[in-house]
Amino acid sequence: SFGARFNRFLANFRSVDEEFFDDLEELLIESDVGYETAMRLSDELREEVKLENVKKRSDVSDVIVRKLVDMYDEEGKEEDNTLKFSKDKTPTVFLFVGVNGAGKTTTIGKLAHRYQQEGKKVLLAAGDTFRAGAIEQLQVWGKRVNVPVQASKAQTDPASVVFDAVHRAVNEDFDILLVDTAGRLQNKEGLMRELEKIKRVITRELPDAPQEVLLVLDGSTGQNALSQAKQFNETTDVSGIVLTKIDGSSQGGIVLAIRNELHIPVKLVGLGEQMDDLRDFDPEKFIYGLFKELIVGSGE
């Protein structure tokens, strides 16, 4: 893991030399933060270490952790990583978007469970009418967490399913509507336009909705995640990211690059396939996780 490797190189660390920063770059790159972000981070850290005239190994790690957390906070000064809800009696709508297999449908199931447990009235919209078994998958989740699903037959226009769902949510006084959509790669123009249309349908019926457009991102994705964030943001004004599958081996470091370039905050993280495996994003914890053993190791 990143932390273990970091610790290992700190253990071998003699003086603050160039090799040290080469290693730091390597560690950052291996956590998928991207080449440019890695270079920028290590340059700034190099500067800082020089400025403070740090020589001792333990001091270096202190400076680095402090600087990283500073930089992280600064990039996100105007960010708000809480989920937004409707300010009046009208239903809150969350629209889920993302590439194929990222974890949209599963995240909807988990979030439905959370709100259902909080006593809210939740409706799901089966807006993926394309992929084999997608509607059934959402319906199984609906049953599992005891929440109704508005669905139509496979291959019908997703915008019309979403239209029906919004109406039902309004007429039957639902608190929250979670809208599933088919996975699509961000370079497919036609499919991206379809998504735009789905969003338009929601806003036409409920001017303040969707309160959230959540881009679901597979935590093991590499640099392509930047392109995903850019394109989905252009089409649907993404308000937050759900980082999934961080129970796997990946660091999810790409969200650092996305944050730096696009200022889209991560709001939720998925760490498993069960209904309880969803957490609010905690930036400090995330950084801590990324650099855990560095922080722990700096005490000596």
Partner: peptide, 12 residues
């Protein structure tokens, strides 16, 4: 394997 996978692809 998903071709969009990052650095972790090798480990997986």
């Amino acid at each position: 394997a998903d071709s969009m996978t990052g650095q972790v692809a090798a480990k997986v």
